[in-house]
């Protein structure tokens, strides 16, 4: 019987993990910024007053 070792996936290095964490944080920041952007754009397009702004 031939022994087939289980396939091993790539074990990310610390540098790869660190870069991925930084990218995830940036994506999170961009998504949050898009929420604000679309909110402000919609309010301005509809001619509505923004809370806290006269």
């Amino acid at each position: 019987m031939i022994h087939v070792p289980p396939p091993q996936g790539h074990v990310p290095s610390e540098a790869e993990l660190s870069a991925r964490r930084a990218r995830n944080r940036a994506i999170g920041f961009v998504l949050a910024a898009l929420v604000v952007l679309f909110y402000l754009t919609t309010m301005a397009k509809l001619g509505l007053k923004l809370p806290g702004l006269s």
Binding site: P6, P7, Q8, G9, H10, E16, A19, A22, R23, R25
Partner: peptide, 15 residues
């Protein structure tokens, strides 16, 4: 080597 074919390096690209 099927398992090896699925191996890929994670990107090192920073923001």
């Amino acid at each position: 080597d099927i398992g090896l074919q699925t191996r890929s390096r994670l990107s090192l690209a920073a923001p």
